[in-house]
Amino acid sequence: MDDFWAMGGYAAYVWSSYGIAAVVLLGNVFGPLIAHRRIARRIKNEEFDD
């Protein structure tokens, strides 16, 4: 198991790549969902009724 995490001495490079990818992907998942929810709430509150 320690061998796996050590990545043959390249641990810093491999894991930082995967870490950054995870952060970017999560941001992409939650960004539109939050935006969608926020717009839906504003419509519900009748903010755009003239």
């Binding site: 960004g31 539109p32 969902l33 969608h36 717009i39 839906a40 504003r42 419509i43 755009f48």
Partner: peptide, 17 residues
């Protein structure tokens, strides 16, 4: 998948009225 959710949000915004 992500683009579809972005489209849903964008669509709601543009059609909000």
């Amino acid at each position: 998948w992500l683009t579809l959710w972005g489209m849903r949000a964008q669509l709601l915004w543009r059609e909000r009225r």
